[in-house]
């Protein structure tokens, strides 16, 4: 411990670019916060679930797809293709889990596991893009409202009130019924809609706290422009909270996508929600079929639950980093 601090002080005496110092400080802050975060059991649980899904989707699937799941010589069709695949060796579809199809096949004869893995990176992309848009909007609007106050503030806060009351899913259902919505557009809509909502209220109140701190005053006195203060002083200080809410927004976005594709309202090739939709419309989740064809709805449903839960857990864990009063002594 003491050794590293000595090294730090020693090396900082030698000339270093401010950028390098900044990076070093960031790394140190990251290490400290990681220590607090890693003490939160629920946060670590979420973290590991996300890692497992990420590894499965980004690494395992491409490897499997190019090796074991490559098209067989039996037919020219790719039997494990998540969208167009069909296994001719199986008499009737959907088939229960077996050694060739670990999670069974869907009513169209496609491998469930392949579909599951194929969709994972897309879910991540959707959740993260939507959450990034939300956080970007929320941070900008929250900071600007807090910093300038007055009419701007009132306008955005009333808008946030309205957005909070907005029946999201019904609204999205109608929108996606009226136009063709693909994954990227959905991320955009979700991100923008929730970016004007509750997150602006929370980040604004945080920015209000930062705004009255002495260092903002001294920055003003030393002649910094308003945009400069916002970008360099206020935003870095509300970033941790933004990051926290980003996690909750990832959950919200993935959940919304799952619901909409489960209703068959999205124009996408494959997703977890769509997997359940396929089974549902083919009549395998109706009445007493539910128990018999469990592999059609349980794996994708569980995947959605796990990934939504995981990001929520990470959020709860981060909460302890961001709000020190929640920490256990």
């Amino acid at each position: 411990m003491s050794n590293t601090t000595e090294e730090m002080t020693a090396s900082s005496e030698v000339f270093e670019s401010p950028f390098k110092i900044k990076l070093k400080l960031m790394w140190r802050a990251f290490k400290e916060n990681w220590k607090i975060f890693s003490e939160s059991k629920i946060g670590m649980l979420g973290f590991w679930i996300v890692i497992i899904f990420a590894v499965a989707g980004f690494i395992v699937y491409p490897i499997l797809a190019s090796t074991v799941w490559k098209s067989t010589s039996l037919s020219s069709m790719v039997s494990y293709n998540p969208v167009t695949g069909y296994d001719f060796t199986i008499a009737s579809n959907p088939a229960p889990p077996s050694l060739t199809h670990l999670l069974g096949t869907d009513p169209l004869g496609r491998d469930i596991l392949a579909q599951l893995l194929y969709s994972t990176p897309r879910e991540f992309a959707l959740g993260i893009i939507a959450a990034l848009i939300t956080v970007f909007l929320g941070t900008t609007i929250g900071t600007i409202s807090a910093f300038y106050g007055g009419v701007v503030d009132t306008f955005f806060m009333r808008l946030a009130d309205l957005t909070l009351l907005f029946p999201f899913i019904p609204f999205l259902i109608v929108i996606s019924g009226m136009m063709t919505v693909n994954l990227f557009m959905l991320a955009l809509i979700l991100g923008v809609l929730s970016g004007f909502g509750g997150i602006t209220i929370i980040l604004r109140s945080q920015a209000m706290i930062v705004k009255v701190k002495p260092f903002i005053e001294s920055a003003k006195v030393s002649g910094a422009s308003n945009p400069y203060i916002i970008v360099n002083h206020i935003i870095p200080n509300i970033m941790p909270l933004s990051f926290l809410y980003m996690m909750f927004n990832v959950t919200g976005a993935i959940f919304s996508e799952a619901v909409l594709s489960f209703f068959g309202l999205l124009n996408i090739r494959m997703s977890w929600g769509l997997m359940i939709y396929t089974a549902d419309t083919a009549g395998y989740i109706v009445g007493t079929n539910i128990g018999t064809y469990w592999w059609l709805w349980l794996p994708p449903g569980a995947a959605i639950t796990l990934i939504c839960g995981a990001f929520y857990f990470i959020g709860r864990g981060l909460d302890e980093v961001v709000n020190p009063r929640l920490r256990r002594r």
Binding site: I42, T251, F255, A258, V259, F262, I276, I285, G287, T288, I290, G291, W294, W297, L298, G301, A302, I304, T305, C308, G309, Y312, F313
Partner: peptide, 28 residues
């Protein structure tokens, strides 16, 4: 926490399966 994070359709399928199909006490 499970009830809070579970995907609603998954919850409902499970309920339908358990009460409607497995126990058979509620209409589907």
């Amino acid at each position: 926490v499970i009830a809070y994070t579970i995907f609603t359709p998954l919850l409902i399928f499970t309920l339908i399966w358990f009460f409607g199909s497995f126990l058979g006490i509620f209409p589907l």
